[in-house]
Protein backbone atom coordinates (compact mmCIF):
# COMPACT_ATOMS: atom_id res chain seq x y z
CA UNK A 1 0.00 0.00 0.00
CA UNK A 2 1.39 3.39 -0.82
CA UNK A 3 1.63 6.22 1.63
CA UNK A 4 -1.31 8.19 0.28
CA UNK A 5 -3.80 5.39 0.75
CA UNK A 6 -2.47 4.70 4.23
CA UNK A 7 -2.94 8.35 5.13
CA UNK A 8 -6.48 8.35 3.79
CA UNK A 9 -7.31 5.18 5.69
CA UNK A 10 -5.98 6.75 8.87
CA UNK A 11 -8.11 9.88 8.47
CA UNK A 12 -11.23 7.80 7.77
CA UNK A 13 -10.69 5.64 10.83
CA UNK A 14 -10.27 8.66 13.07
CA UNK A 15 -13.36 10.35 11.57
CA UNK A 16 -15.48 7.28 12.26
CA UNK A 17 -14.06 7.14 15.79
CA UNK A 18 -15.16 10.75 16.21
CA UNK A 19 -18.68 9.80 15.04
CA UNK A 20 -18.79 7.02 17.62
CA UNK A 21 -17.56 9.47 20.23
CA UNK A 22 -20.67 11.60 19.70
CA UNK A 23 -22.75 8.96 21.50
CA UNK A 24 -20.49 9.26 24.55
CA UNK A 25 -20.63 13.05 24.38
CA UNK A 26 -24.44 12.81 24.26
CA UNK A 27 -24.53 10.85 27.51
CA UNK A 28 -22.12 13.23 29.20
CA UNK A 29 -24.15 16.21 27.98
CA UNK A 30 -27.40 14.69 29.28
CA UNK A 31 -25.87 14.10 32.69
CA UNK A 32 -24.21 17.52 32.87
CA UNK A 33 -27.28 19.51 31.82
CA UNK A 34 -29.80 17.57 33.90
CA UNK A 35 -27.73 17.41 37.03
CA UNK A 36 -26.18 20.85 36.61
CA UNK A 37 -29.55 22.60 36.61
CA UNK A 38 -30.87 20.21 39.27
CA UNK A 39 -27.93 21.11 41.48
CA UNK A 40 -28.96 24.78 41.23
CA UNK A 41 -32.53 23.73 41.99
CA UNK A 42 -31.55 21.83 45.11
CA UNK A 43 -29.59 24.82 46.37
CA UNK A 44 -32.92 26.61 46.66
CA UNK A 45 -35.22 23.72 47.52
CA UNK A 46 -34.00 21.14 50.05
CA UNK A 47 -33.85 17.73 48.39
CA UNK A 48 -35.75 16.19 51.29
CA UNK A 49 -38.71 18.58 50.80
CA UNK A 50 -38.68 17.74 47.09
CA UNK A 51 -38.73 13.98 47.60
CA UNK A 52 -41.21 13.81 50.48
CA UNK A 53 -43.49 16.82 49.94
CA UNK A 54 -47.09 16.06 49.02
CA UNK A 55 -48.02 19.38 47.39
CA UNK A 56 -46.85 20.21 43.88
CA UNK A 57 -47.32 23.87 42.93
CA UNK A 58 -44.09 25.08 41.33
CA UNK A 59 -45.67 27.96 39.38
CA UNK A 60 -48.36 29.23 41.76
CA UNK A 61 -47.69 31.22 44.89
CA UNK A 62 -47.24 30.04 47.59
CA UNK A 63 -44.90 27.74 45.68
CA UNK A 64 -44.47 24.19 46.83
CA UNK A 65 -42.11 21.59 45.45
CA UNK A 66 -43.23 18.23 46.79
CA UNK A 67 -42.79 15.83 43.90
CA UNK A 68 -44.78 12.92 45.37
CA UNK A 69 -48.02 13.72 43.48
CA UNK A 70 -46.14 13.58 40.15
CA UNK A 71 -44.33 10.41 41.19
CA UNK A 72 -47.54 8.68 42.31
CA UNK A 73 -49.29 9.78 39.10
CA UNK A 74 -46.45 8.36 37.01
CA UNK A 75 -46.35 5.08 38.91
CA UNK A 76 -50.13 4.69 38.65
CA UNK A 77 -49.97 5.07 34.87
CA UNK A 78 -47.07 2.60 34.75
CA UNK A 79 -48.95 0.09 36.92
CA UNK A 80 -52.29 0.25 35.10
CA UNK A 81 -50.74 0.20 31.64
CA UNK A 82 -48.71 -2.87 32.54
CA UNK A 83 -51.91 -4.68 33.55
CA UNK A 84 -52.70 -4.58 29.83
CA UNK A 85 -49.31 -4.70 28.13
CA UNK A 86 -47.60 -7.44 30.15
CA UNK A 87 -50.15 -10.30 30.08
CA UNK A 88 -51.43 -9.50 26.58
CA UNK A 89 -47.92 -9.03 25.21
CA UNK A 90 -46.77 -12.32 26.73
CA UNK A 91 -49.91 -14.08 25.49
CA UNK A 92 -49.35 -12.78 21.96
CA UNK A 93 -45.76 -14.01 22.10
CA UNK A 94 -46.79 -17.51 23.20
CA UNK A 95 -49.40 -17.62 20.46
CA UNK A 96 -46.95 -16.50 17.80
CA UNK A 97 -44.14 -18.84 18.79
CA UNK A 98 -46.06 -21.95 19.92
CA UNK A 99 -49.53 -22.02 18.36
CA UNK A 100 -49.70 -20.07 15.13
CA UNK A 101 -48.56 -21.45 11.80
CA UNK A 102 -46.25 -19.58 9.43
CA UNK A 103 -49.12 -18.04 7.45
CA UNK A 104 -50.84 -16.56 10.50
CA UNK A 105 -47.53 -15.21 11.76
CA UNK A 106 -47.00 -13.44 8.45
CA UNK A 107 -50.27 -11.57 8.96
CA UNK A 108 -50.06 -10.93 12.70
CA UNK A 109 -46.50 -9.64 12.94
CA UNK A 110 -46.99 -6.67 10.58
CA UNK A 111 -50.15 -5.75 12.47
CA UNK A 112 -48.22 -5.66 15.75
CA UNK A 113 -45.45 -3.66 14.06
CA UNK A 114 -48.06 -1.22 12.81
CA UNK A 115 -49.46 -0.84 16.34
CA UNK A 116 -45.94 -0.16 17.61
CA UNK A 117 -45.22 2.34 14.85
CA UNK A 118 -48.23 4.59 15.41
CA UNK A 119 -47.06 7.85 17.03
CA UNK A 120 -47.99 8.35 20.66
CA UNK A 121 -49.84 11.56 19.81
CA UNK A 122 -52.33 9.42 17.85
CA UNK A 123 -52.82 7.13 20.85
CA UNK A 124 -53.42 10.25 22.93
CA UNK A 125 -56.14 11.36 20.54
CA UNK A 126 -57.63 7.84 20.62
CA UNK A 127 -57.59 7.81 24.43
CA UNK A 128 -59.31 11.17 24.77
CA UNK A 129 -61.92 10.84 22.02
CA UNK A 130 -62.65 7.10 22.15
CA UNK A 131 -61.53 5.32 25.32
CA UNK A 132 -62.57 8.04 27.77
CA UNK A 133 -66.19 8.29 26.48
CA UNK A 134 -66.54 4.50 26.78
CA UNK A 135 -65.23 4.47 30.36
CA UNK A 136 -67.56 7.39 31.17
CA UNK A 137 -70.51 5.47 29.84
CA UNK A 138 -69.75 2.50 32.09
CA UNK A 139 -68.66 4.53 35.13
CA UNK A 140 -70.32 7.97 34.95
CA UNK A 141 -68.26 9.42 37.81
CA UNK A 142 -65.14 9.28 35.59
CA UNK A 143 -63.47 12.62 34.96
CA UNK A 144 -62.75 13.75 31.39
CA UNK A 145 -59.03 13.45 32.03
CA UNK A 146 -58.22 10.27 33.92
CA UNK A 147 -55.52 7.73 34.62
CA UNK A 148 -57.44 4.73 33.29
CA UNK A 149 -57.89 6.02 29.75
CA UNK A 150 -54.27 7.08 29.34
CA UNK A 151 -53.09 3.79 30.86
CA UNK A 152 -55.17 1.69 28.46
CA UNK A 153 -53.73 3.59 25.49
CA UNK A 154 -50.16 3.18 26.79
CA UNK A 155 -50.87 -0.50 27.44
CA UNK A 156 -51.95 -1.03 23.82
CA UNK A 157 -48.94 0.92 22.58
CA UNK A 158 -46.37 -1.05 24.60
CA UNK A 159 -48.01 -4.46 24.03
CA UNK A 160 -46.17 -5.07 20.70
CA UNK A 161 -42.82 -4.33 22.35
CA UNK A 162 -43.43 -6.96 25.07
CA UNK A 163 -44.71 -9.41 22.46
CA UNK A 164 -41.73 -8.94 20.18
CA UNK A 165 -39.07 -9.22 22.93
CA UNK A 166 -40.70 -12.32 24.44
CA UNK A 167 -41.27 -13.94 21.05
CA UNK A 168 -37.63 -13.44 20.07
CA UNK A 169 -36.59 -15.29 23.22
CA UNK A 170 -39.07 -18.11 22.63
CA UNK A 171 -38.13 -18.54 18.98
CA UNK A 172 -34.49 -18.88 20.05
CA UNK A 173 -35.32 -22.16 21.78
CA UNK A 174 -34.52 -24.92 19.31
CA UNK A 175 -37.35 -27.07 18.00
CA UNK A 176 -35.59 -30.22 19.18
CA UNK A 177 -36.57 -29.24 22.73
CA UNK A 178 -40.24 -28.93 21.74
CA UNK A 179 -40.17 -32.09 19.66
CA UNK A 180 -38.73 -34.02 22.58
CA UNK A 181 -41.68 -32.97 24.71
CA UNK A 182 -44.19 -33.71 21.95
CA UNK A 183 -42.68 -37.17 21.54
CA UNK A 184 -43.49 -37.80 25.19
CA UNK A 185 -47.10 -36.92 24.46
CA UNK A 186 -47.21 -33.34 25.73
CA UNK A 187 -49.90 -30.96 24.53
CA UNK A 188 -48.93 -27.58 23.10
CA UNK A 189 -50.06 -25.97 26.34
CA UNK A 190 -47.76 -28.18 28.39
CA UNK A 191 -44.85 -27.36 26.12
CA UNK A 192 -45.60 -23.64 26.27
CA UNK A 193 -46.17 -23.38 30.01
CA UNK A 194 -43.80 -26.02 31.38
CA UNK A 195 -40.87 -25.81 28.99
CA UNK A 196 -40.88 -22.59 26.99
CA UNK A 197 -42.00 -20.22 29.76
CA UNK A 198 -39.53 -21.39 32.43
CA UNK A 199 -36.57 -21.33 30.05
CA UNK A 200 -37.38 -17.83 28.79
CA UNK A 201 -38.29 -16.45 32.23
CA UNK A 202 -35.32 -14.09 32.42
CA UNK A 203 -36.00 -12.60 28.98
CA UNK A 204 -39.67 -12.19 29.86
CA UNK A 205 -38.84 -10.45 33.14
CA UNK A 206 -36.43 -8.18 31.31
CA UNK A 207 -39.08 -7.34 28.69
CA UNK A 208 -41.55 -6.52 31.46
CA UNK A 209 -39.15 -4.10 33.14
CA UNK A 210 -38.43 -2.40 29.81
CA UNK A 211 -42.15 -2.02 29.09
CA UNK A 212 -42.73 -0.39 32.48
CA UNK A 213 -39.79 1.91 31.87
CA UNK A 214 -41.28 2.89 28.49
CA UNK A 215 -44.62 3.64 30.17
CA UNK A 216 -42.89 5.85 32.74
CA UNK A 217 -41.20 7.88 30.01
CA UNK A 218 -44.27 8.08 27.77
CA UNK A 219 -45.29 11.68 27.35
CA UNK A 220 -47.89 12.71 24.79
CA UNK A 221 -50.60 10.22 25.80
CA UNK A 222 -50.55 11.36 29.42
CA UNK A 223 -50.24 15.02 28.42
CA UNK A 224 -53.46 14.68 26.41
CA UNK A 225 -55.55 12.18 28.33
CA UNK A 226 -54.40 12.00 31.96
CA UNK A 227 -54.92 15.63 32.91
CA UNK A 228 -52.89 18.39 34.48
CA UNK A 229 -53.88 18.24 38.14
CA UNK A 230 -51.03 17.24 40.42
CA UNK A 231 -53.19 15.91 43.25
CA UNK A 232 -52.02 13.09 45.45
CA UNK A 233 -54.73 10.49 44.95
CA UNK A 234 -54.97 6.87 43.99
CA UNK A 235 -58.22 6.96 42.03
CA UNK A 236 -57.73 5.69 38.46
CA UNK A 237 -60.86 7.52 37.31
CA UNK A 238 -59.56 10.92 38.44
CA UNK A 239 -57.27 13.40 36.76
CA UNK A 240 -53.60 13.42 37.76
CA UNK A 241 -50.31 14.75 36.44
CA UNK A 242 -47.25 12.68 35.65
CA UNK A 243 -43.63 13.83 35.60
CA UNK A 244 -43.62 13.94 31.81
CA UNK A 245 -47.05 15.61 31.71
CA UNK A 246 -45.76 18.36 33.98
CA UNK A 247 -42.68 18.89 31.81
CA UNK A 248 -44.76 19.29 28.65
CA UNK A 249 -47.25 21.57 30.33
CA UNK A 250 -44.53 23.85 31.69
CA UNK A 251 -42.71 23.96 28.35
CA UNK A 252 -45.82 25.14 26.51
CA UNK A 253 -45.36 28.49 28.21
CA UNK A 254 -42.31 30.66 27.72
CA UNK A 255 -39.80 29.84 30.45
CA UNK A 256 -36.59 31.78 30.90
CA UNK A 257 -33.25 30.28 31.82
CA UNK A 258 -32.27 30.93 35.44
CA UNK A 259 -35.82 31.03 36.80
CA UNK A 260 -37.00 28.51 39.35
CA UNK A 261 -39.44 27.11 36.74
CA UNK A 262 -36.55 26.30 34.42
CA UNK A 263 -34.62 24.60 37.21
CA UNK A 264 -37.71 22.66 38.30
CA UNK A 265 -38.05 21.33 34.75
CA UNK A 266 -34.54 19.90 34.94
CA UNK A 267 -34.97 18.54 38.47
CA UNK A 268 -38.03 16.56 37.37
CA UNK A 269 -36.24 15.56 34.16
CA UNK A 270 -33.24 14.32 36.15
CA UNK A 271 -35.52 12.23 38.32
CA UNK A 272 -37.23 10.74 35.26
CA UNK A 273 -33.85 10.00 33.71
CA UNK A 274 -32.59 8.29 36.86
CA UNK A 275 -35.70 6.12 37.25
CA UNK A 276 -35.71 4.94 33.62
CA UNK A 277 -31.93 4.44 33.60
CA UNK A 278 -32.05 2.26 36.71
CA UNK A 279 -34.92 0.21 35.27
CA UNK A 280 -33.12 -0.27 31.96
CA UNK A 281 -29.98 -1.39 33.78
CA UNK A 282 -32.05 -3.81 35.88
CA UNK A 283 -33.59 -5.19 32.68
CA UNK A 284 -30.14 -5.76 31.25
CA UNK A 285 -28.89 -7.25 34.52
CA UNK A 286 -31.74 -9.77 34.62
CA UNK A 287 -31.04 -10.76 31.03
CA UNK A 288 -27.44 -11.64 31.74
CA UNK A 289 -28.24 -13.76 34.79
CA UNK A 290 -28.80 -17.53 34.61
CA UNK A 291 -29.29 -17.61 30.90
CA UNK A 292 -30.25 -21.10 29.77
CA UNK A 293 -28.10 -22.13 26.83
CA UNK A 294 -28.95 -24.84 24.35
Amino acid sequence: MNKKIKQKEFIIEKTLLLFAGITIITTIAIILTLFGESFLFFREIPIWDFLTGTTWAPTLKPRSFGVLPLLVGTLMVALFSSIISLPLGLGSAIYLSEYSNKKARKVIKPILELLAGIPSIVYGFFALTFITPIIKQILPQTEIFNVASASIAIGIMTLPMVASLCEDAMMAIPDSVRNGAYALGSTKMEVALKIILPSTATSIASAFVLAISRAIGETMIVAIAAGQSPMLNFNPLASIQTMTGFMVNLSLGDIQQGTIEYKTLFAVGAMLFMITLIMNLIAKGILHRNKVRY
Binding site: T23, L34, I216, L265
Partner: peptide, 15 residues
Protein backbone atom coordinates in the same frame (compact mmCIF):
# COMPACT_ATOMS: atom_id res chain seq x y z
CA UNK B 1 -25.57 3.13 22.97
CA UNK B 2 -27.87 0.50 24.48
CA UNK B 3 -28.63 2.81 27.39
CA UNK B 4 -29.20 5.83 25.16
CA UNK B 5 -31.80 3.82 23.24
CA UNK B 6 -33.81 3.53 26.46
CA UNK B 7 -33.71 7.19 27.46
CA UNK B 8 -37.23 8.73 27.20
CA UNK B 9 -37.61 11.07 24.23
CA UNK B 10 -38.56 13.98 26.47
CA UNK B 11 -35.11 13.84 28.10
CA UNK B 12 -33.55 14.42 24.67
CA UNK B 13 -35.81 17.44 24.48
CA UNK B 14 -34.25 18.79 27.70
CA UNK B 15 -30.79 18.17 26.28
Amino acid sequence: IANLAGVPSIVYGML
